[in-house]
């Protein structure tokens, strides 16, 4: 992080190539620098952790977040935001641990939450794109409603346990690679292909760069915004299933954290409102960087408050770097 700052201030100097290098460096999402710094820190401070198996275990914990981030990045590229991811995670967790779906096959355990995610995405999208309500308020409101519903249904007490089949999938590995990480990578590749090759991806870039121009060029703006929110709802539900399967029990606590982390990783990965830039790789690396950063902090006994401070600082610094670049 410090490195980026130094270079960008040097960029004001006379040397042309320094300026060019500075510009090139500032183009790279901050996530890569954070990841490099964290890896160096881990290697220096606790080399025992530098084994693929250990690192992959840390990364496995972040696979659900990583899947949700895939949705968040599409939404943010369409100049919207999805703060309801936390709520979707919570209601998914409730559906899977309350016994409502007891005895159902694994396919149903995944499909029902996905259907809920789809509905949430549709509601978000319709209110934002058709009613033109503020995306922040709508998705925050939806998140509150979902959390409230779960609290009401469970009387504030976290429900039971996750069906064993799901737990088994969450803990399985193919060779050394955990299955959740494989699901995450596959989902990321699908989204990347979607953004690169389909017209939908080009539309997103156009809207991100200039929504007015996009609208005057006849792009179906409302439909695209609704689509991104539906995709985000689906991916959040999938992330919620993976999260709950890994957690094993019911809980109502983690919502805000997931929501904040999804935005943090997306911004860290180089996606900001209305720049039209940013791919899947940046936020992917952002999630990995956050996973390892939090793991490192846990190793050093830094508690929740410290993590909140680091998280907020990282978001702010990344956003400031981008803000200065796009001025």
């Amino acid at each position: 992080m410090a490195h980026t700052f130094e270079t960008s201030s040097n960029a004001g100097g006379a040397n042309h190539w320094v300026r060019a290098l500075g510009r090139r460096l500032i183009e790279i999402p901050p996530a890569y620098f954070v990841l490099a710094a964290v890896l160096v820190a881990i290697a220096l401070l606790n080399p025992n952790l530098m084994k693929p198996q250990v690192l992959l275990t840390f990364i496995r914990q972040s696979a659900p977040l990583g899947v949700a981030v895939l949705g968040q990045l599409m939404v943010m590229r369409a100049r919207s935001i999805d703060l309801s991811i936390g709520g979707v995670f919570i209601i998914t967790n409730y559906l899977l641990t309350s016994g409502l779906l007891g005895g159902q096959p694994v396919a149903m355990l995944v499909l029902v939450p996905l259907a809920v995610g789809l509905v949430v995405g549709l509601v978000n999208g319709a209110l934002i794109a058709l009613v033109r309500a503020s995306a922040v308020i709508v998705t925050l409101g939806v998140s509150i409603i979902l959390t409230g519903i779960v609290l009401f249904m469970s009387s504030g007490r976290p429900p039971g346990r996750v069906p064993d089949e799901l737990r088994a999938i969450a803990n399985a590995r193919i060779d050394v690679v955990p299955v959740p990480v494989i699901i995450w990578v596959v989902a990321a590749i699908i989204v990347a292909v979607l953004l690169r090759t389909l017209i939908f991806g080009r539309y997103l870039t156009a809207i991100g760069s200039n929504p007015q121009a996009a609208r005057f060029s006849g792009l179906p703006l409302p439909r695209i915004v609704v689509t991104t929110h539906v995709l985000s709802g689906l991916l959040a539900a999938l992330g919620g299933v993976m999260f709950t399967a890994a957690l094993g029990v019911g809980s109502v606590k983690f919502g805000p954290e997931i929501m904040m982390n999804s935005i943090a990783a997306t911004i860290l990965g180089g996606v900001t409102f209305g720049s039209g830039r940013g791919g899947v790789a940046g936020p992917f690396v952002g999630v990995v960087a956050f996973a390892l950063l939090f793991a490192l902090m846990t190793v050093f006994g830094i508690q929740e408050p410290g993590k909140l401070i680091v998280q907020g600082t990282v978001i702010a610094v990344a956003a400031i770097i981008y803000g200065m670049r796009t001025r």
Binding site: M260, I263, L308, A316
Partner: peptide
């Protein structure tokens, strides 16, 4: 983004 970030830091 800015106030979400400061919200997190201040909460910490």
């Amino acid at each position: 983004i800015m106030t979400l970030a400061s919200m997190s830091v201040v909460q910490g």
